[in-house]
Design a protein around this nucleic acid. Sequence first.
DNA 1: CATGAATGAGCTTTCATTCAT
DNA 2: AATGAATGAAAGCTCATTCAT
Lengths: 210, 210, 210, 210
Amino acid sequence: MPRAERERQMMDAAVRTFGQRGYRAASMDEIAERVGVSKPLVYLYLNSKEELFTACIRRESEALVAAVTAGVEPGAPADRQLWTGLVAFFAHTAENPDGWAVLHRQARTHGEPFAAEVTKTRDALVAYVTGLIRATSREAHSAPDLADRDVAGLAQALVGAAESLAAWANETPGVSAREAAATLMNFAWAGLGNLMAGERWTERARLLHG
Amino acid sequence: MPRAERERQMMDAAVRTFGQRGYRAASMDEIAERVGVSKPLVYLYLNSKEELFTACIRRESEALVAAVTAGVEPGAPADRQLWTGLVAFFAHTAENPDGWAVLHRQARTHGEPFAAEVTKTRDALVAYVTGLIRATSREAHSAPDLADRDVAGLAQALVGAAESLAAWANETPGVSAREAAATLMNFAWAGLGNLMAGERWTERARLLHG
Amino acid sequence: MPRAERERQMMDAAVRTFGQRGYRAASMDEIAERVGVSKPLVYLYLNSKEELFTACIRRESEALVAAVTAGVEPGAPADRQLWTGLVAFFAHTAENPDGWAVLHRQARTHGEPFAAEVTKTRDALVAYVTGLIRATSREAHSAPDLADRDVAGLAQALVGAAESLAAWANETPGVSAREAAATLMNFAWAGLGNLMAGERWTERARLLHG
Amino acid sequence: MPRAERERQMMDAAVRTFGQRGYRAASMDEIAERVGVSKPLVYLYLNSKEELFTACIRRESEALVAAVTAGVEPGAPADRQLWTGLVAFFAHTAENPDGWAVLHRQARTHGEPFAAEVTKTRDALVAYVTGLIRATSREAHSAPDLADRDVAGLAQALVGAAESLAAWANETPGVSAREAAATLMNFAWAGLGNLMAGERWTERARLLHG
DNA sequence: CATGAATGAGCTTTCATTCAT
DNA sequence: AATGAATGAAAGCTCATTCAT
């Protein structure tokens, strides 16, 4: 069997094992056994557990970014971009639960150098969402400028909500990617719109019944 | 030194160690050393690594719920309850980063029986938020009823956004609990309000520029 | 509580624990707990696990020898002495299964210095049986003298048979001490008698149908 | 070195170590060191201390049964079968003192699941002896039938006597297997013969001088 | 392209034993 | 007469990693 194919098999097995057991609890024995090869071959191709895990993180990061990117129409309005991006995101996490577990749970839980690796990807997604919010802000030019930190916080909130909904959608039978995306759009978009319009919730005057 | 105090010290050390290293990577040696006692004493008092971790999860869960509960005025309107609850939540996670790491990251990452333990607490918080959304829905009685699953998804999104913002606030210097809470209220409340009013974002007719 | 009484309680608990678990598997914790006292008290009174076990062996040895001795009429004929001694032996082992387990199983299994301790007692019993056989030999003075080693072997066989029957009687419901003793007398006595009479089993000419 | 041979070496070392020290006191370190390999290799091949001990018991059981079986002529008269079986038994235990210690002492002393394992083998031997006694009873058809329990007791006594003589022969220099077997035959056979003939020792009328 | 054989280092856990009171 | 607090030492077991082929 050619090396490239073997490596792919190994990464597949590693993603499943790391995703289900975690970095520490996963054993190289189990990974080798899942592939049906001997452990030395795994070491020959992928050098060490740490490198293997890092490679998994990188591969799954790239796959996630590629999936989301493929789902987005570059020139479309911001809310359309967000919508299609979210649908792609939820579809991808639903199809790759172990890969998503590696990125969202395991990599961030097991310290350096893994956390840094996945943080890069997450920051890229947050930056993309930040850009969408800024773009909206420019489109609705009547609005007062949002401070950088506000935008950053909003993007974090949106991405966190998406992550939470991804887990919820995977656990709840029958929730489709579109449904999860719709839930998030309904939840988020009006809030963003109001912010653009300069309306804010405050302790004194509450927006809803104000 | 009396047993009760030693046990508290041990739990403190355990929360720090588990929070920073993860369940598997944390060693009983390190925990004992942090307390300044020998390992057998840790086992004498807390029985096993698994029980110790479970005890940490339980203690931190109770502390978190207690902090949020203490921050909420029971009779207040839903948005006020959400606001004060969020401030309490962000304040607590900021003051107890390791406890929060144990709950949010480690416990959910290391499989059963730990995940079940923390899921109970998270489900309780989600249920509380669900209740707030339902209460809002009743207050704005003009609105059509939201389906159960919609409410559940919204609550998941809100809790996920809060979790994400907690991490962000802890990493970003100078972000206070009130600021994090305000970001989330602004993000979320108008969206909820629109939903109550029967307005939804759809692919065809977009709310924002509609 | 007076020391003597406490020591007796401790020995009782130790005999039960050692008898059931073995020397290594028995823990001082368990023994102390069975008595309902703290471990330091056990050490204060009995010094160490090794001394405690040795004390158990000695106490149970003495109790066994005392029971058998009490069952024997000194002036009686050899077979009568054997009979009453066996009945006493089987009765004692049935009433003190843990003590018997300490002597027969545990002490001989766990090396020096314990094996030596119990060997002394067993050798005394073997010597006593040897004496009975010699006495019989003198009574039946028509017989040719038995070699020392022959007598020693016979005594070993008899004692081993008794030990085996003790275990069998304890495991088999409804087997009384008298029944066990009768089985052994029937098994052994005629063989001894024939030996006294100079008749031996040989490969060529078999006694039974000879 | 090929695995099969290493495993044999390990079992040899384990039998020696367990036989001399007992199950609990034997350490995997010592066993590994005796073989001249590292501990992990022992675990890789034999899984655990418990499995290793069980494997030792089984191997030694089979070896013992094989030795005795090989020594017996199937069609021969009962006393001849007993004689040759005993010679084989004493020869085997003399050649394998550690294996015999594992079976006779250690396995029966350290509770389940080991006791059950060796009990199976011992019961098989007892059953074989029981068969011999029954066969004798049939050959001497003039005798009244012996009750099942009587036969069982006799077989236990005979096997116990053999076990005791095995230890004695191993400790006493110069006692051959044939000599030990002769001692036991002389001791036992006449007793059995008398029983077949319906003569029993009783408290009142003693056979010997009757 | 691939593996059988092997290990150093580290982990959780247990236990006999002591000290201060 | 008695104990709560504490530990040094060792055991069973696992795992990432390598060497020789």
